[in-house]
Design a protein around this nucleic acid. Structure first.
Lengths: 340, 340
DNA sequence: TTGAAAGCGCTAACAC
DNA sequence: GTGTTAGCGCTTTCAA
């Protein structure tokens, strides 16, 4: 027969030991301003002595808020989210908020709507770092911040009231493309995929090419953004334009897919062809790959998203906040001037 | 001035609309056995009509359990956890449990003990898929299942009562090593790192080598298990034993680090040297890397962990459950017979 | 600055 | 089978 667990001390036990009322303990916990130092000390000591932990359930029930924010990630396989999350938490934690993280792919696989899941959890706000299905964000009663460049159905987009914090993906792709142009490349292809950031990155690439008087060559428009998609798009690009000397990929994994396509054709990186990725993921930093990549500063995107949320909690009527962070290019070994 | 949100319907509203009592609604929600179909239908209809969502906070408070299990992951950068999580959720979701996921690295960075965090959340159980700091698991009042091979302080280990579900890491490394031996390799090095699985994998490698009458060559014992660590260990190995023709790495990222070290020395994979990874991560499947790797079936580890937990909820007195799943080898392009 | 008291929405005996 | 009745542990007016 299993021993019954010792019941956890409640706020009531703390109050009794400290010789004060429940309400006073509650005030100390939320470190309210008007509490005398003597009483505060006494309460803190009692909490310590009892090993008291407040019950989030009771607190949520009484206060009607969970102090939890739902974070919707696109795909746990793409480690882009790790920095985003670190940034979010660096602000949320000290403010007493908890991040509840879900992965869109995983949720979709289990056949449920992740936003609904968060709503069922009664989160106080949502951070969306994924392209959600059309309409899923309508009528959410909680503040929403969209982190990263995202694509919504046109209708939803108009109706959606949300704050937006993102890296400037178009600018990032422009930086990547201009880097190749500056190195002397003229024949540069782009590997894209259908996603919110993908569309912006493609635009940046196209702008840079046009500004330099070069023809944009875009492949993979109908595909996804995985390594396999990058490989497929690169194959199509190379078959159509074998003379290419530069490739700008919509992200790092696609760039790795391109690497395989190039090697299969006997082309060397960067001697024959230069390759640029996007996201500056850990992948790009691996010595074996050494990808030049665009850093979108996702940690700062996360932190700024959290700050925006806290500001909106303070003032729900605040006008929509939109912020684009400036990306930077990280040059590694996958780019070089074209062969003379 | 912001509009006040419409108050969410409560169980009471549902009861009223359905013309039954609160308790009956509660019974329907937990689909209890003895409810007449008529009433059940009425309640379900009312729930639907009102768009009612039960309040987890109220439910947790009243029932004294959160129906949440805390999942401690080692490092979000290592996508090993994605499959583990998918497996866990495939069982937990239908049973009405929620997984709350934390990353040991991230928590450590914010200076807090993740297990404490889970305890503060009042989770009903813990799944540990990381090497927790010594002593952190002592005196946890909730069921624990350790997923994967883990290392605990010796003292804690003795006291710790937990169920264990893991891939057989030693066997996996043995499979990898035997694969190289069978291909004809005689001079095979191992790249290890300090971690729970690392120690087991090293053991498997050593056993296979000894069984074949070969000398084990282990490097990286004092290091970590990242790409950089794999690179460093491989450099040490190659400097000490330039004639090596096979490398067994403790995981896939370390194998990628080794790839860089080999290339720097002008060695080709697999023509000059064969490389085997471990975990069969997405990395291993990238065409550009095409790593032969050991699949530890982490999805099944997750599912079995969840099943174990549910069983223990049913019967807390159940004897400790220990299960090792048999790994399998996935052969790709990074291994081949040694040059004649 | 502190205490008393009324719930928050739900579960779980227990009675009918 | 179904309803009644206490709370679960905390927050939050409102008085004192």
């Amino acid at each position: 027969m299993p021993t019954d667990p010792i019941p956890r001390p409640t706020i009531y036990d703390v109050a009794q030991l400290a010789g004060v009322s429940k309400s006073l303990v509650s005030l100390v916990l939320r470190d309210a301003p008007h509490v005398s130092d003597v009483r505060r000390e006494a309460v803190l000591a009692a909490i310590e002595e009892l090993g008291y932990r407040p019950s989030p359930a009771a607190s949520a029930l009484a206060s009607q808020r969970t102090r939890t924010v739902g974070v919707l990630i696109d795909d746990f396989h793409n480690p882009w989210f790790v920095e985003l999350l670190a940034g979010l938490r660096s602000i949320l934690d000290p403010a007493g908020y908890t991040a509840s993280v879900a992965d869109l792919q995983l949720e979709a696989a289990s056949g449920r709507n992740p936003v609904d899941g968060f709503l069922a959890q009664h989160v106080d706000a949502l951070v969306i770092a994924a392209d959600p299905a059309e309409g899923t964000l309508d009528g959410v009663g909680a503040p929403i911040v969209v982190a990263g460049t995202r694509e919504f159905g046109a209708a939803a987009d108009a109706a959606l009231v949300a704050d937006v914090v993102a890296g400037d993906d178009a600018l990032g792709a422009r930086l990547a493309t201009e880097h190749l142009i500056r190195l002397g490349h003229r024949s540069i292809g782009h590997l894209t995929g259908s996603s919110g950031p993908g569309a912006q990155r493609r635009r940046g690439y196209e702008e840079a090419m046009q500004a330099a008087g070069l023809d944009p060559l875009v492949f993979g428009e109908r595909g996804g953004t995985s390594e396999a998609d990058g490989y497929a798009a690169a194959c199509a690009l190379l078959d159509a334009h074998p003379g290419i000397t530069g490739v700008v990929a919509a992200n790092d994994v696609m760039a790795v897919g391109a690497l395989a396509a190039l090697r299969e054709r006997g082309l060397t990186v960067p001697a024959d062809v230069s390759v640029v990725g996007h996201d500056d993921s850990p992948l790009a930093a691996y010595r074996y790959l050494a990808l030049t990549s665009v850093d979108g500063h996702s940690r700062e995107v996360g932190a700024e998203s959290a700050r925006t949320l806290l500001a909106r909690f303070e003032d729900p009527g605040m006008p929509p906040h939109r912020k684009l962070l400036e990306p930077s290019l990280v040059v590694r070994g996958s780019t070089a001037p074209p062969r003379a």
